[in-house]
Amino acid sequence: MTQTTTQPATPAWPTEDEKLAREREVNALGMWVFLASEIMLFGGLFLVYFVYRFRYPAAFAEGSSELNMWLGALNTAVLLTSSLTMALAVHQARGSSRKTAVLFMLLTMALGLLFLAIKGYEYWQDYQEGLVPGLNFTYSGAEQQAVALFLVLYFVMTALHALHLSIGIVMVGVAIVWGQIRPFAHDPAEPVEMIGLYWHFIDIVWVFLFPVLYLLR
């Protein structure tokens, strides 16, 4: 609660750079409040997952073993790397050269698209193996119902994550294009910083998704 001294300062409109500093804080705060709502969204999904895992432990372990763990691990590595490139992009955008910032942002987009490609391939593989409840479900092992429930939750959670990732990729693309068209906006690094916060959040969601869905015993 930083507050100016209570004795009345001379009434004056905030100066330009006062407004700029407040601007940056306002945007970061706004993004963090938005991320709090996203935490509740994914958190609720994790709660549904843990309640059913608490109820059907064996079936969830069985369902988890059907998934391709190595693709999951690879995807985690891809997303962690994209977090690094995003952080470096923000660093460069803040710092001197905007050119390398754009380069890192392109790299981040590429890694994001790679993640989606691997995920798509994994979905296609699951479809081939008949593991998609509601569309093509030919699993005939024990506790078929509970395994179907695990796979439903697997698809809902990863699809919601992939949707958020796709939005992130689009936003990075928009930031690059926007940076070129109006490079002299008074604070060019601001949008990059905001998208960085969002991107790292999406990475954190996957950091939890991977062990919870794939590494279950």
């Binding site: 952080a87 960085g196 790292h200 950091v207 919870v212």
Partner: peptide, 18 residues
């Protein structure tokens, strides 16, 4: 263990990258 490691990774990302 698996959630602990995930929490650690999340903290690293929040504190430094973010």
């Amino acid at each position: 263990v698996s959630l602990g490691i995930a929490l650690l990774k999340a903290l690293l990302i929040i504190l430094f990258f973010m």
